[in-house]
């Protein structure tokens, strides 16, 4: 299941319609000519990418797959991943950037996907827990370490913990237990599995260091 292809449902038809609408409406709204659309704009003012009530098309990569999908300008990356791309690993905990359950990587850096406007990931590479396992299907060392150290109870925060933990090691912030605790403080575990989490990261940091 974790290797599920994250391609969105077929939206090619919606896309065609929506692009025409987008063209027509934004051209009308700004007074710009249709001929200028899609080329480098000579006019100084950029055309709106989305008007109220309209969707915008966003192109980005998720776990190595190219995605082109329509999003509401209000949508968070988290909602697009979960509701449109059926990638439900990243969790909605607080929806305000306070709990870390929604952590994913954008261009190799961990972010709170609930506070990331989907419109802002245009052209970027997103990595979620579903894309973390290795090419042969085996678990990432951090996933294995969480199992080995019993680093969870209910598991709700775990995808966010693991994505944050992988970044924590890659950033070079896992050199001691104190440093791990400091740089993992954005991920809350209400079951209190912190002891196992720190042990798992310390362990996986060694394995990952060999990469």
């Amino acid at each position: 299941m974790s290797e599920q292809d994250p391609s969105p449902r077929d939206r090619s038809n919606d896309l065609a319609i929506s692009r025409r609408d987008a063209l027509r409406i934004s051209a009308a709204a700004t007074g710009a000519s249709l001929a200028g659309f899609g080329k480098t704009m000579a006019a100084a003012q950029p055309m709106p990418v989305a008007l109220p009530g309209m969707s915008l098309t966003v192109h980005f990569q998720v776990n190595g797959n190219h995605i082109e999908t329509l999003v509401d300008p209000r949508a968070s990356l988290l909602d697009v991943l979960r509701e449109q791309l059926a990638l439900t690993g990243a969790k909605k905990g607080c929806d305000h950037g306070q709990c870390g359950a929604c952590t994913v990587h954008v261009d190799g850096r961990r972010v709170a996907s609930c506070l990331t406007l989907a419109a802002k990931v245009e052209g970027r590479q997103v990595l979620t827990i579903e894309g973390l396992s290795l090419e042969d299907g085996s678990l990432h060392p951090m996933q294995q370490a969480f199992i080995d150290h019993d680093a969870l109870q209910c598991g709700y925060c775990t995808p966010g913990q693991i994505m944050a933990a992988v970044a924590c090691v890659q950033e070079g912030h896992a050199s001691s237990d104190a440093e791990i605790r400091e740089y993992m403080s954005g991920n809350i575990c209400r079951c209190g599995a912190y002891v196992g989490i720190v042990a798992a990261i310390r362990d996986a940091a060694v394995t990952m260091g060999g990469d």
Binding site: Q45, P48, V49, L51, P52, L117, K120
Partner: peptide
């Protein structure tokens, strides 16, 4: 509430947007 979303790629583009429609500036968004 829904909103119009634009992207400025230069200070000049930002200035033009601000002069025309007075958009709020969005950076990291946090």
């Amino acid at each position: 509430q829904t909103f119009t979303y634009s992207r400025a790629r230069s200070i000049n583009e930002l200035r033009a947007v601000q002069a025309a429609t007075g958009d709020r500036i969005l950076a990291g968004g946090t």
